[in-house]
Write a protein that binds this DNA or RNA. Structure first.
Lengths: 191, 191, 191, 191
DNA sequence: GATGAATGAGCCTTCATTCAT
DNA sequence: CATGAATGAAGGCTCATTCAT
């Protein structure tokens, strides 16, 4: 009845929801969406199978939750940045991007797991596209300011390259993919 | 009984195997590995469910077959090329690479569908890596010949960029991704 | 603490119990017993799921409550009538019966929903039979007074006919079943 | 390969389908559609749960199968009859109708189980209504030939009465419901 | 080799009921 | 009395794989 108790309950609920999200993220990214059972998520979250559905009304809903969860973590890292003016800005943005990927490997593994799955493509668009487009705009503006007549193609090339590097890094693992060097090269080429 | 008849039988068997591979490739890439049933592959190949298992001893085995099959198709396109000397060579190789991707979209869709699934990652390594490494060597040699001291990082960057461009093109579809322009930009940057 | 307050509480409790009964009756008859969840009843009654069980100790118990509740509503309509003497009495009783059915369609829908389910047949017997038997007696007396030697069979036939008409009316809906005419015919035949 | 073998297989398949239909009919009518699990049907039919779905693609589909199965059994009994001319015809038709009900009690129990369940009402209409309407026409013609100006209302009354009698007989059981006498009374009233 | 009926494990989801608060 | 998070059993259904023919 006291505010404290209610708050605690709310806290607990959030904790549990977070726990579920974390478990789902991990399992989805490790074994793929289709190969992960709700059962296994329940066990890992220490929640009963039935109770899972009090937090997420379906497996697909849980996936959407996971995507939003991951996206929000990323957004925090980029919130302040609105334009790129100098080479330093550019270099910094690129590096920050890869730092973020390095600190969210699990999520990105999930991302590459899903990106090519037609069944979840719509969902993906819904959650990710807005974020990506805004991100692309940032680079496009920079290239245009440097006199690039084809700034949108250049931005798309850069975006695709980042995508490809991330994919390689995520899939091969930090020990096998020399991320630092490749990123340095990337910055040299595009700055 | 005659050699000819045996050959014909062998031929027929191969035909049927081919049919299965084609069907599986198409369905896997369209609906994903997990969402494709052996039943549906059997129907599309006009082979009975039971007989499917005379050609491939499991679904996973069939997947491996499909990957080999796709890889072999690609290999044919690149067999002759052994070194890159001039900018023209380079440009030609890059463009040829994307031509190949354009003519094998189905296969590449499957590839990106699977690349992030650890369950098939081992399989992927087994089948693809040798091919990719040889391909990377080609570029590395070219960059080295141009005096690049860090030719292996550059080659990896190029490879990753190609990967990212392909992924974008495959996922967004030819109508939405301006492949031509992006590839032009890519060649300019790396040539 | 004062009697008045206790009464009010009692009143409130009854109100809530009534609310639950009404909700359950509606939902049971609309979607069937098996397809109605306690959850949905709780929501419609604006009672928490847990609290529901303070009023009815199980879903089956709630059903029994609903049946009693419906029966009691009917009883009120027939309480005063004790014998049928004239054709007018007879005609009036029949018509009154169908008026009652028309004003309790929801309940009767539930009734016909349950009547054939052995699982609730025992329950049905417990609650309905006494009422029905008394009702049959009424007609039997009338037919006997008219010299019918087989008055009990006639009464049973009449009862069954009423049952069948009600079933048809309830199931086909008032717009599709010409209740008035059929009842007129019924009265002509039996009066 | 020989016709005989194929035939035997076909026979077996039919046998199994029949077995499933019989089991489902029995269980549905005993415990209701919603309270019967596919599992229990499988066990009773000595068929694996999975194999059940090779014969009926869903539980609802199985129900439809059961309804058709029951209807077909009935149809055979009535096929020849096309018009009712004399009192004997009429009396015979009525009695034959109840004979049929007596020899298909299980099916009719299912029928009354379903008739009031909204979820399967559409299905019911699809399967039963055509049959019933044709049956009503038969009586309507008879009453009209006797000069009844309101023959359709009378036919509907008769139909409803039959319905009600059947319901009573089915629900109370042969020992408790004096079917013979009630039917005699019915015929007297309507002939 | 060819067929497809048969199996059984496993999946997602629902729901009556309980219980800590 | 009141709440709703939590449980766990059960349900309908799918599917890779096997095997008798």
């Amino acid at each position: 009845m006291s505010p404290r108790t209610e708050k605690q309950i709310e806290k607990l609920k959030q904790d549990k929801e977070l726990l579920i999200l974390e478990s789902a993220l991990l399992l989805f990214s490790e074994k793929g969406f289709g190969n992960t059972s709700m059962q296994s998520i329940a066990i890992r979250s220490k929640v009963s199978k039935g109770n899972l559905y009090n937090y997420f009304k379906s497996k697909e809903d849980l996936l959407e939750g996971v995507l939003h969860y991951g996206l929000n973590q990323m957004k925090e890292l980029f919130y302040e940045q609105s334009t790129i003016h100098t080479e330093e800005d550019f270099s910094y943005t690129i590096r920050a991007n890869f730092e973020m990927i390095k600190s969210n490997e699990t999520f990105w593994k999930l991302y590459y797991n899903l990106v090519a799955q037609p069944k979840v493509y719509a969902l993906f668009n819904k959650v990710f596209l807005p974020f990506f487009e805004q991100y692309m705009k940032l680079f496009e503006g920079y290239f245009k300011s440097k006199g690039d007549k084809n700034s949108d193609a250049t931005a798309l090339l850069l975006g695709s390259s980042i995508d490809g590097i991330s994919l390689g890094y995520i899939m091969m693992g930090g020990d096998n993919y020399p991320l630092e060097e490749v990123v340095n090269r990337l910055i040299e080429k595009f700055k």
